[in-house]
């Protein structure tokens, strides 16, 4: 049976068919190559997009969002962090404090003076009364 089967090796394609088919195949466009290149480009673009998105998400997660909001939404807050501005602000605060203290001392001095005058007036009255009392006591005893 094996010997009989090997006789099937004698089957050969027709020479005319072989030449015609070969020419048709090799003259047909191998469109797969351009599709392959396009697919490669598409794949690389997809990879880049995925990588970029991942990077953006990581940036947002680690606090980029809060930093961006500070930079974009509140520039005043950012400027307040400038050391020179802070020093100027501190100096002006001291000056304002000194002025307010001076005003306070001026106002309080006047009040104290009035209070002292009143007190001294009362003391004089008391002295006068004491003298009157002494006179009266002397008159009684004599």
């Amino acid at each position: 049976m094996e010997r009989l089967l090997t006789k099937l090796k004698s089957i050969e394609p027709n020479k005319e068919f072989k030449e015609r088919s070969r020419a048709l195949i090799l003259n047909s466009p191998q469109s797969g190559i351009s599709i392959g290149i396009f697919n490669r480009l598409l794949n690389s673009a997809q990879f880049s997009a995925a990588f970029s998105l991942a990077a953006i998400f990581i940036f947002l997660i680690i606090g980029g969002l809060s930093m961006l909001s500070q930079r974009i939404l509140s520039p005043a807050l950012l400027s307040s962090l400038d050391p020179e501005n802070l020093t100027e602000e501190a100096a002006s605060l001291d000056f304002q404090i000194q002025l307010s203290q001076a005003e306070y001392y001026e106002e309080s001095a006047e009040k104290v003076e009035i209070a002292l005058n009143e007190t001294s007036g009362e003391l004089k009255n008391l002295e006068n009364r004491e003298e009157e009392l002494n006179k009266l006591l002397n008159e009684i005893t004599l």
Binding site: P13, N14, L24, I25, S28, Q30, G36
Partner: peptide
């Protein structure tokens, strides 16, 4: 033979167009 020739042609045409895969 005609069917065999048609199919064989299709096989090699497909191989040529898809050999990049």
């Amino acid at each position: 033979r005609a069917e065999a020739e048609d199919l064989t042609h299709e096989v090699f045409l497909s191989a040529w167009q898809n050999i990049h895969n």
